[in-house]
């Protein structure tokens, strides 16, 4: 009987992230969040479901394929997803089929020989550094006002404590 594991790869730029800077600038200068928003950072999230193999060894292999260490850093979490204190993490993913996730799965399975890869999910995690009250409500307004188009994206405001992937 096989058991599945989820290898979560959080990946972020260690050089300045122009997209996060543009989002911050737009929220502050164009959308009225100057009083509540301090900063915006961004991560890519790969959730790779495997049905066999040593998850730690696989995670190292996946990181070698999916992370460019020259410009990116990463963190691996097994079967759970957690985030640090100090910001509100908003996970944005497609609710229609994600072609990049499908391509990543197919490349891992068919080109790179990881036949134990069952599924790959991709998301962007926007890390909103907010101040003041009602931070979750502000994060919701930001997500719905800029970070998603509801006709193709969905979002989830992640807790700061351990949460299931």
């Amino acid at each position: 009987m096989s058991t599945t594991s989820t290898i979560n790869l959080r990946v972020w730029l260690k050089i300045p992230d122009a997209e996060a800077a543009t989002v911050k600038n737009t929220l502050i200068r164009r959308m009225g969040f100057a009083d509540s928003l301090q900063d915006v950072k961004k991560e890519r999230l790969f959730s790779i479901i495997v049905d066999s193999g040593d998850p730690e060894k696989l995670a190292r292999s996946f990181a070698r394929e999916l992370v460019n260490e020259n410009k990116e850093s990463h963190k691996v979490l097994f079967d759970r997803l957690s985030f640090e204190e100090g910001y509100v993490p908003v996970k944005v993913a497609l609710h229609i089929e994600d072609g990049e996730a499908v391509s990543t799965r197919d490349r891992l399975r068919n080109r790179l020989g990881f036949s134990n890869v069952v599924e790959v999910k991709k998301a962007t995690v926007w890390k909103l550094y907010l101040k003041g009250e009602n931070q979750e409500q502000v994060a919701k307004e930001i997500a719905e006002g800029l970070l998603i188009n509801p006709h193709k994206d969905s979002y989830e405001i992640m807790g700061k404590t351990k949460m299931p992937a």
């Binding site: 122009a18 997209e19 543009t22 989002v23 737009t26 800029l146």
Partner: peptide, 9 residues
């Protein structure tokens, strides 16, 4: 640069 998604910014 299509940041966030095309046309959004």
């Amino acid at each position: 640069q299509d940041r966030v998604r095309a046309g959004a910014i």
